[in-house]
Amino acid sequence: MSKKYQVFVSSTYEDLKGERDQIIKAILEMGHIPVGMEMFSAADDEQWKIIKRQIDESDYYVVAVAHKYGSVTEDGISYTEKEYDYATEIGVPVLGFVIDRSASWPSTLMEDSADKRASLEAFKDKIKSRLVNFWNGKDDLHAKVSIALIKSISTNPRTGWVRSNEVVGPELVKELTRLSTENSSLRKEISILQEEKRKADRDSDVKDELFDTLRKNKVDIYVWLNGEDSWGEPVEGSLLGVFQAIAPNLMVENDFENIGRDIALRYKGTKYRERFPVPQNLISHWLADLSALGLIEPSKKKHPVSDNADYWSLSKEGQSFLKKLRKIQLERGLVEKEKPEIGSPRSES
């Protein structure tokens, strides 16, 4: 029987239109059936049910990633990552394609948000935990999708689709028996692999659970700029961004007012007012949240009785988490250039 396989194609849309066309072209040239959900945002429950059903019915799942993380769900993950997580959860063979770091790419098609860049890199790491291909252009992607799909079909044949007039009684029974046995065997293998992956994830360099918790908790950042007479419109941030802003200066300790300056510097640059540029009540809430997660704690250093400032420092877990984040950023060239601060130098305690 001549089988056709359904292949689900997942990626961000606006930045990868041409690349998606090449993936679909490669699938069609092989005589198989591409399925794409670019018309759906997955934000609506009914739309997400349709997307899940299409993934359920697909034999293979192809995901292509470049330099955009894309729109995010209420949980703080992108729709592409949500589709990827579901495909891996139900055991659909995943073919991952991540853009090569040396490939040229328009800056206008790159994430300009530090938080989204961090989420994108975490997503890429997730894809790289399985077999992955690196591409540097549309033509290269077309060729690598074709080769990877041929190999996957050869080494991991799926149920597929056949014309009804090609299905003969005894052959169908034999095929169903074979597929049932194969499915049972694959489910056992998948269960073992998933358990091994869970164990590996617990020991991975980045603590995914803590990372996800921080990035999912979105916060509004208000910064009072020089020459303004009010807080103005907030910038969308996250607890992860707040932690990354204040953590370096908490390696020893830092006081409440300077913590606010660190946050202002990250989100608005150097043009903030010197005295309390970020609302104190918001800083208190964020510090309480980071303390509840075990990342920071009140400083244990001694200070003069006349010093009424509140000092904070990283906990041991916070130091470990910061070290892992910085290591990954340094390895990938993601550490942003430092900007000089405004106002008077910080006093030594």
Rank of each mutant, 00 (worst) to 15 (best):
123 F>H: 00
7 V>N: 01
301 K>N: 13
174 K>D: 14
281 N>R: 15
33 I>N: 03
221 I>S: 00
236 E>F: 05
197 K>T: 11
171 E>C: 07
173 V>Q: 12
332 R>K: 14
200 A>M: 07
298 P>D: 07
149 L>T: 01
291 S>Y: 09
304 P>G: 15
243 F>H: 03
69 Y>N: 02
101 R>L: 11
322 L>H: 05
198 R>P: 04
186 L>N: 12
256 F>W: 08
53 R>T: 12
321 F>P: 05
89 E>H: 10
284 S>E: 14
57 E>M: 07
256 F>K: 04
287 L>H: 05
349 S>W: 14
316 K>F: 13
64 A>C: 02
27 I>L: 01
166 E>P: 00
206 V>Y: 09
278 V>T: 09
130 R>G: 11
297 E>R: 09
9 V>I: 04
234 P>V: 09
200 A>I: 02
221 I>T: 04
79 Y>W: 08
270 T>H: 12
30 M>N: 06
95 L>R: 02
312 W>Y: 10
60 Y>T: 01
81 E>W: 04
169 G>V: 15
70 G>N: 02
321 F>S: 05
304 P>Y: 15
258 N>W: 06
5 Y>P: 02
198 R>Q: 12
291 S>A: 13
269 G>K: 00
337 K>C: 06
283 I>Y: 01
104 S>M: 10
33 I>Y: 08
328 I>H: 13
238 S>G: 04
38 E>L: 02
47 Q>R: 04
334 L>G: 05
285 H>R: 15
342 I>A: 14
103 A>Y: 00
235 V>F: 10
96 G>I: 03
266 R>C: 00
66 A>G: 11
107 S>K: 15
252 V>F: 12
175 E>K: 08
25 K>A: 10
318 G>P: 01
96 G>H: 03
128 K>W: 06
179 L>H: 09
94 V>K: 03
162 V>W: 08
172 L>Y: 09
328 I>C: 10
339 K>G: 07
2 S>K: 15
194 Q>S: 12
115 D>N: 08
74 E>N: 13
248 P>K: 01
231 W>N: 01
246 I>V: 10
326 R>V: 11
42 A>M: 07
183 N>V: 10
84 Y>T: 06
125 D>F: 10
328 I>R: 15
326 R>L: 13
105 W>M: 03
249 N>W: 09
49 K>I: 08
107 S>D: 15
311 Y>K: 04
8 F>N: 01
154 S>E: 14
299 S>I: 00
122 A>M: 12
